[in-house]
Design a protein around this nucleic acid. Structure first.
Length: 200
DNA sequence: CTACCGATTGACT
DNA sequence: GTCAATCGGTAGA
């Protein structure tokens, strides 16, 4: 990959802005097995204040420690025996992040398919735990510096015009459903979630 | 120590 | 559309 990784200052902003700007950027994962990755098409913002759905809501614990680290680092957690990947936002100690929910697979399709037990191409990276499995992302990368441009990083590819970005309530949470903090690229074809949430 | 439960997924009707 | 498997984190006794 020739693109430079997104700089620290990209992540050192409020999570809503970062979540929107992250749409269209590349997520790249390099292992000994090869390079895999794709274009980010769906994200969710988790706020430091007044957001009961945010893992940082009840203060620091061992699980969410990475969320209170410097911006631009990975926060990876386990849920239902699976992994999900976030990018930490705002100043260290704030406790906000952006969850990467879906990417459009572009690179290393064969390897990703292998890691996903040869499931249909459309289902390779649709969903936060699916993309982690396709990219071989697990707890070993929790706290990883995404601005290093090594192992796991993000790079600028294209900006999407405002009218191609949709928003909805976040998926899978029980509190904070009134907040429209999920963002996605309209008509992407690689989105997770029920279809009704991908229309506005 | 036990009990509960989730920022999910995949199989099934 | 429905539903159960899954297992580490967290809270509470």
């Amino acid at each position: 990959m020739t693109n430079q990784s997104l700089p620290r200052k990209f992540f050192n902003r409020d999570p809503v802005t970062v979540a929107r700007d992250m749409l269209g950027t590349l997520l790249i994962r390099e292992t000994e097995a090869g390079v895999t990755g794709g274009r980010i098409v769906e994200t969710e913002a988790y706020l430091a204040d007044g957001d009961a759905a945010c893992h940082a809501h009840r203060g620091p614990t061992r699980r969410n420690a990475a969320m209170f680290g410097a911006p631009g680092h990975a926060y990876i957690y386990t849920i239902h025996a699976k992994f999900c990947l976030n990018a930490v936002t705002q100043a260290a100690g704030t406790g906000s992040a952006v969850l990467i929910r879906a990417i459009e697979p572009l690179c290393g399709l064969e390897l990703m398919s292998q890691r996903r037990q040869n499931r249909p191409p459309r289902d390779l990276t649709r969903g936060p735990a699916r993309l982690c499995q396709a990219l071989d992302v697990d707890l070993d990368l929790n706290g990883w510096d995404l601005t290093r441009g090594d192992k796991l990083w993000m790079a600028r590819e294209e900006d999407f015009p405002e009218n191609r970005i949709g928003s909805s309530a976040r998926i899978g949470i029980s509190s904070g459903q009134d907040l429209k903090l999920r963002f996605y690229v309209r008509a992407s074809g690689f989105l997770s979630g029920p279809a009704r949430l991908n229309r506005s």
